Amino acid sequence: MLKQVADGVWVRQSEWVWSNAIVVRGDEGLVLVDPGINGADLQELADDVDRLGIPIVAGFSTHPHWDHLLWHPRYGDVPRYATSTCAEVASEARERAQAMAAASASDIPLDLVALLTPLPADGGPVPGEIIEHEAHAPGHVAILLAGRGVLIAGDMLSDVLIPLLDPRRPGQLAAYKTALDRLSAAAQQADVLIPGHGSVAEGPELAARLAADHAYLDALQRGEDPADPRLAQDWLAGPHQSNLNAS
C-alpha cells in the first residue's frame, strides 16, 4: 500500500530487500521512480496509483541496476527517464538485467526491463533537482524536492544496506565520499529521506544516516573492519568483503 510521506510523494515498500517504489506528483501528472520488485508488487502499485486518480506521465530510474529498471504495461507507454550515462549503461547491459530479474523475482514483464530515455536538460516532467554522482553505479542520481523537503537517494543512505562500492570501477571509495558530501548538502533542504532500500528517515535521522555511511567508509579507508550494526545481516558478508577488496 502506498504511504504518503510528503505533499505529492508516496512510497510503497516491497518485501524484497525492503525496496521502495516512489510515486511523485509533478506538474503534468505522476512520475514513478524505481518501481518494483516482483510482478505482484508491480500490479499492486498500479492498483494504488489508480486509486490516486492521477495519470502516470513518466518513469525514472535512479541507476542502472536491474531492480531499478522495471516497468509494467499498466503504467502506460510513457517515457522512462534516467541520466544519459544510466540510460547508456542500462541499454548495453539489458540482457544481463533481464536475466537477473528473471532469476531474482517472479512475473516481471522482462520485455519492459531497461527501456530508458536520457532525461532532457530541462528535466521534462520529472520535478526537483537531479544530483548525479559516481557512487555505487554509473549515472547514479538523487532527486531533491526542496519545496517539499524530500530527498530521494536511490541506493544510498539506507538503514539496512551498507554503502555498496562498484567493484568494476576504480576510485569508488573517494567517489562514494564525494557523493555523500553532495547528499549532505542537499539534505540541508530536506526533512524526509527516501532510500532505495529500507525505511524512510525523517528529521534527525537524516544526519544519522549520513554519519553511519561516513563511519563505515572511514573504517574501510583505515583498513579496519567497521563496527556497523547493518553487518549483522549474514547476506551482506559478500558485499562487505567486496568493499574491503575494492578499498
Rank of each mutant, 00 (worst) to 15 (best):
T178W: 03
V200R: 00
I194F: 04
V192I: 15
G171V: 10
H197M: 02
R169E: 07
L180I: 13
R168W: 11
P170D: 13
G203L: 07
Y176C: 07
A186M: 12
P204M: 14
A201S: 15
T178G: 13
L173T: 02
G171H: 05
L173R: 02
A175R: 05
P195F: 04
S199N: 14
H197I: 04
I194R: 07
G198C: 09
V200M: 01
I194D: 06
A179E: 08
A175N: 03
L193N: 01
A190C: 08
G196C: 08
A175P: 00
Q189L: 13
I194E: 03
A185N: 14
V200H: 00
Q189P: 02
P170Q: 11
L180Q: 05
A174R: 08
A185I: 14
E202I: 03
R168T: 11
T178V: 09
G171M: 07
V192G: 08
A174Q: 10
G171N: 07
G171W: 02
E202W: 01
V192D: 06
K177Q: 14
R182N: 07
A186K: 11
R182M: 14
P204H: 09
V200N: 00
R182L: 12
Q172D: 10
H197F: 02
E205T: 02
D191C: 10
L193P: 01
S199M: 10
A179P: 09
A185W: 08
D191M: 04
K177R: 15
A179D: 10
R182Y: 01
R169D: 11
T178C: 04
D191I: 05
T178E: 14
A201R: 05
L183C: 06
A175C: 02
A179V: 10
P170A: 13
S184A: 15
R168A: 06
L193S: 00
A187F: 04
A186E: 10
P195S: 11
